[in-house]
């Protein structure tokens, strides 16, 4: 990887975005990249804003927050409105249409899917929307290997939730494979 790759995962507190950031960062470490993962969130544990930044590079990463994203995942309208304009022109935008209804700007590489609804339908609860959309992101960007993501999920979530999250991961990969078809 020649340049660093900046990813912002954004939404509201309780959607599991920081855990998704940790999973992605750990996967990048497994793939032997340099990585930083930072977060910003309000004092509430649910509601409010929440975001996780992951920067992946093969060189020393100086500034650890994403300022000019290669990829933005937005799970709420508010997050999408707030961060859309910091996406690079060539950047990839992934939105959850369950909550994001208006796009202020049509990015060239936009992927729109109702991740939360899909999680409720296919996995029985919205709880693994984070891993579902992260797996989709990984498949679309190719930023870490699928194998590393799986290993990272196994290492990062509580044992009781490993199966559910691996199911969510596979579903995310499939959604990306079949996107637009």
């Amino acid at each position: 990887m020649d340049k660093s790759y900046e990813i912002r995962l954004s939404g509201s507190g309780g959607q599991g975005l920081i855990l998704a950031g940790i999973i992605l960062a750990r996967a990048a470490v497994i793939d032997k990249h340099k990585v930083t993962q930072t977060q910003s969130y309000g004092p509430e544990s649910r509601g409010g804003y929440s975001r996780a930044d992951v920067i992946i590079s093969d060189r020393e990463i100086y500034f650890p927050e994403a300022t000019n994203f290669n990829c933005l995942l937005a799970l709420t309208q508010e997050a999408c409105d707030k961060y859309l304009f910091d996406l690079r022109e060539t950047g990839i935008l992934i939105i959850d249409t369950t909550f994001v209804k208006n796009l202020a700007l049509a990015a060239d590489n936009t992927y729109e899917l109702p991740f939360t609804e899909i999680a409720m339908d296919k996995l029985g609860s919205p709880i693994s929307t984070n891993v579902l959309s992260l797996a989709f992101l990984v498949k679309v960007t190719g930023i870490v290997s699928e194998k590393a993501l799986e290993t990272s999920i196994r290492e990062s979530v509580k044992p009781a939730f490993v199966d559910l999250n691996l199911k969510a991961m596979k579903l995310g990969f499939d959604l990306a494979k079949n996107y637009g078809k």
């Binding site: 990585v35 930083t36 930072t38 927050e65």
Partner: peptide, 9 residues
């Protein structure tokens, strides 16, 4: 705060 909460390889 950012360094306390940051994860890095």
């Amino acid at each position: 705060e950012v360094i306390g909460h940051m994860r890095e390889s």
